[in-house]
Design a protein around this nucleic acid. Structure first.
Length: 537
RNA sequence: GCCCCCGUAGCUCAGCUGGAUAGAGCGCCGGCCUUCUAAGCCGGAUGUCGCAGGUUCGAAUCCUGCCGGGGGUACCA
């Protein structure tokens, strides 16, 4: 597939070579629209970065590069000049714009896809909320992030598995079982149990809950709760390839995966016994204290099971991405150490730490605790503001910044949400194409001199592949939100300045092509966010 | 104490593997519906980029130290 910016970069690299420089520095070479368009359509620091290898002053080297590009690009390059310490400013000709627009249109919705340098099998594990209650609004941030990241990585060319780790073992499950039984008997839940009203509802759905064993009641409860979580996620547009049960790692005897993993760690010399417990010496591998694998009562810890789980994932994927809540950041060092102790490269596991979502209502933050049953569910949030606004709102901020989600604002002024602006731009594009009634020509026709709004739109459209790469490699879906917004603004400016209906045939055809390209790209961007792109609002 | 995240416009935040006069949304002020969707468009005001040093031709961006806010620091999961 042809990528106009990538082609320009390749030409620039050739020019650097031809000028006697070292093109191996291309990774550090920028080729972007400058902030101020008076500097040209694209500016590059190529000479500043590569002049050293040529022995020439940057400005002189930039001038040589300019001449080389002039020769190679012909009428695609209208003019160039050297500025400041050695920037090379390029003004592109209409010929380049027409060709670039053609490339975008030709690729359609696939434009910008498949650009990943190393195509990896990636396992993204996210949400993995404990199945002890419904999914919370905060869980909606993890779900939106993980799912969108998975979509972006796939679009970028990777194979991605979405995975949910069900913590259906351990002490909290015991607490859940006891809580359900208490409710079934009409009594209060234990001190450290789950007191939310949903437990009462749950108890009524489990026949004979009052008299069963806690473990069995808990498993029945988990089954119902997981089904509920899955159904909420489905509504939210999120689906998983695997629902991995922690319980399957534990076994009745010494043959369980957890036991095998602990054995392997001992054989590797990283585990030791002390105070009746089995420890992993993570301090040898960068952690600040050693961690227990098997408690003195013989029960393996959550950590031990998690190591077994990651060992399993390492056998299935080249790269693992875990999306965790900020309250788990202390877990990063020990998990990294554990991967190393397994004899694997810790770099294969990335842990993305999501900062919190605060729900703000009436100007005060509401604390959320699943244990107390005091929380807003994701379903409630979706009832209030809808899937599109919820996903956009959760995704528009970087994962490492805390989000204040103002419920009053989300409820009362959803029309001000930028997501509607983007959807509106998409609908407008669809509408104007339909209204023109002549279809969309396959190849852009040469128009009269291009309008600045047309050029700006094309510059934006061709920057999509780089933006996708950036969002993928930096694990940053929020960049796609920002991109979609800017693209929509620039489409809207084009829509305002370059009327389609009433223009000459050649102008109309070219503009239809641009409108179609913009519509396709907005739809693609929204698709990566899991937000719908309706044809009319 | 130690560890992680944040501190940029009135508010919420982009920008952060260094680049030319620092951006968006919302809010605020003033205009625009006989013409492709007014869920829109146009114009305007608003900043010691937390503070202090350092590196650099160049720092919101990198380094060091402080200050402020949030979170974590279990033989819980």
């Amino acid at each position: 597939m042809s990528d106009p910016i990538a082609e320009l970069r390749a030409t620039l690299a050739e020019a650097i070579n031809a000028a006697g420089g070292d093109a191996s520095v291309m990774d550090r070479v920028a080729l972007d629209p400058p902030k101020d368009l008076k500097f040209g359509d694209l500016a590059t620091n190529a000479a500043l970065v590569s002049a050293g290898s040529s022995g020439l002053p940057p400005r002189d080297f930039a001038a040589i590069l300019g001449k080389e590009l002039e020769a190679k690009l012909g009428d695609s390059l209208a003019s160039w000049d050297v500025a400041g310490p050695g920037f090379l400013n390029l003004t592109l000709g209409d010929a380049w714009y027409l060709k670039a627009a053609g490339s975008v249109v030709e690729a359609g919705g696939q434009f910008g896809s498949g650009g990943s340098r190393d195509l990896e099998k990636v396992i993204v594990e996210f949400v993995s909320a404990n199945p002890t209650g419904p999914l919370t609004a905060a869980g909606g941030r993890h779900a939106a992030y993980g799912d969108s990241l998975a979509r972006i990585l796939e679009f970028h060319g990777n194979t991605v598995d979405r995975e949910y780790y069900i913590n259906d073992a351990g002490a909290q499950i015991q607490r859940l079982g006891l809580s359900i039984i208490a409710r079934a008997n009409g009594t209060e839940v234990p001190e450290d149990g789950y007191s939310g009203d949903y437990i009462i509802e749950l108890a009524s759905q489990i026949p004979g809950a009052a008299d069963e064993e806690p473990a069995e009641v808990a498993q029945a409860g988990i089954k119902i709760l997981v089904a509920g979580i899955a159904s909420t996620l489905e509504r939210y547009g999120v689906s998983f390839d695997h629902w991995f049960s922690e319980a399957t790692l534990h076994g009745p005897d010494g043959s369980s995966q957890v036991t095998k993993t602990c054995d392997a760690l001992q054989r590797g010399g990283h585990a030791f016994s002390e105070d009746g417990a089995l420890w992993l010496r993570t301090t040898d591998l960068g952690d600040d204290k050693d961690r227990v694998l098997v408690r003195s009562d013989g029960e393996p810890t959550y950590f031990a099971a998690d190591i077994a789980y990651h060992a399993d994932k390492l056998s299935r994927g080249e790269r693992l991405i875990d999306v965790w809540g900020a309250d788990h950041h202390g877990y990063v060092a020990r998990m990294t150490a554990a991967i190393a102790a397994l004899g694997e490269d810790p770099a294969r596991l990335e842990m993305v730490i999501m900062q919190f979502v605060n729900l703000v209502e009436g100007g005060t933050r509401s604390q959320m605790s699943k244990r107390r049953g005091d929380f807003v569910t994701l379903d409630d949030l979706l009832d209030e503001i809808g899937v599109d606004a919820a996903r956009w709102f959760m995704l528009q901020r970087s994962h490492d910044t805390t989000v204040d989600l103002d419920l009053d604002l989300a409820r009362d002024s959803s029309a001000e949400n930028p997501v509607y602006y983007v959807q509106y731009a998409h609908a407008r594009a669809f509408s104007v194409i339909a209204k023109a009634g002549v279809g969309v020509p396959a190849i852009p026709m040469p128009a009269a001199e291009l309008h600045e709004s047309e050029k700006q739109l094309i510059r934006r459209l061709v920057s999509w592949p780089a933006e996708v790469a950036e969002a993928a490699t930096r694990r940053a879906p929020h960049r796609i939100c920002a991109y979609a917004l800017v693209l929509s603004q620039e489409f809207t400016a084009f829509y305002r300045d370059c009327r389609i209906i009433g223009a000459t045939d050649t102008e109309r055809d070219f503009r239809l092509v641009l409108a179609a390209a913009a519509q396709a790209q907005i739809a693609t961007a929204l698709g990566l966010l899991g937000v719908s792109a309706p044809n009319e609002l």
